[in-house]
């Protein structure tokens, strides 16, 4: 990395260690360009929120972080997403998407537990990493479920199907599933959009609890949620990064006109 790209990556006025930086990232779905030269940093142990109207590219950007776009033919990345401290460009075709996904966990919009038992769901990420020792797996499963604030509700029914849980419980199960292998970064794609307000509040609480101690997350969701739970906010519009700043700045004194229009509800 040359001096210029580093300067771009750390453009935000902060002195916290970086977990990743996005540098001139563009993305195409076949012929259609969905991201245009996106630049922003992701700070270690902070919650970074991506906000913007639907179709602005925030999910596309998030899914670039664990190469989900590789699953469908015709998609193309340009630019870099550098993961620290290894300094690997995770969107480079030379980097194995499996490796990226083993480092970065993801939770999706709708709860998507596997058609298996609660235990097997949480243990799945350990299994795929070759961790088979029963005592170790049991420990990690319990730890992850405790982190996801689900342990007490499911500890007596670990062998029953994950589909017997409520929507909110299923989503916390998916968070536990992502946390179990201790990923370097956790991506959350509108994790509460399919949930009721009470379940939403629990997940938000959980994200805030996890952020300082465990790892980094990116959340894309509605503005109120971003304001409540994130430290940094990136506002996106039409595939471009309009503004990136400390969350309070974005919501109290945005520098861009478009950001102000969006957060005051004038469009979006």
């Amino acid at each position: 990395m040359d001096a210029l790209t580093i300067e771009k990556a750390v453009a935000a006025p902060v002195d916290e260690p970086l977990r990743a930086s996005v540098i001139d990232l563009s993305f195409h779905y076949g012929e259609k360009q969905a991201l245009f030269d996106v630049n922003f940093p992701i700070h270690d142990r902070k919650v970074t929120a991506l906000i913007g109207p639907s179709g602005c590219g925030k999910s596309t950007l998030l899914r670039a972080f664990n190469r989900m776009h590789d699953l469908y033919p015709g998609n193309r990345y340009q630019g870099e997403v550098i993961l620290y401290p290894e300094q690997i460009n995770i969107v480079s075709p030379a980097v194995d998407p499996m490796l990226v996904r083993l480092k970065i966990g993801m939770v999706f919009q709708k709860p998507n537990p596997f058609p298996k038992s609660i235990y097997e769901n949480v243990a799945a990420g350990l299994w795929v990493r070759g961790i088979r020792k029963k005592s170790l797996v049991d420990d990690r499963v319990e730890f992850a479920l405790t982190q996801a604030a689900l342990w007490d509700e499911v500890k007596d029914r670990m062998r029953s199907s994950a589909y017997g849980l409520s929507g909110g419980q299923q989503q916390r199960l998916c968070i536990a599933r992502a946390l179990a292998p201790a990923p370097e970064m956790l991506l959350l794609d509108e994790p509460t959009s399919a949930l009721d307000p009470i379940a939403t509040a629990r997940i938000e609480e959980l994200i805030m609890e996890l952020a300082p101690t465990v790892k980094i997350m990116i959340v894309t969701h509605n503005m109120q949620q971003a304001a409540r739970i994130s430290n940094y906010t990136a506002f996106m519009h039409l595939g471009r990064m309009v503004e990136f700043d400390v969350t309070t700045n974005i919501f109290t004194s945005p520098k861009e006109r478009k950001t102000q229009d969006y957060i005051t509800g004038r469009f979006g």
Partner: peptide, 22 residues
Amino acid sequence: PDPLREGAFALGFTRFQTAIRV
């Protein structure tokens, strides 16, 4: 549904593991 497959891939499953396990 595809979200189930994506969930498996996001955990680092290969295509074959996804087919067999999910």
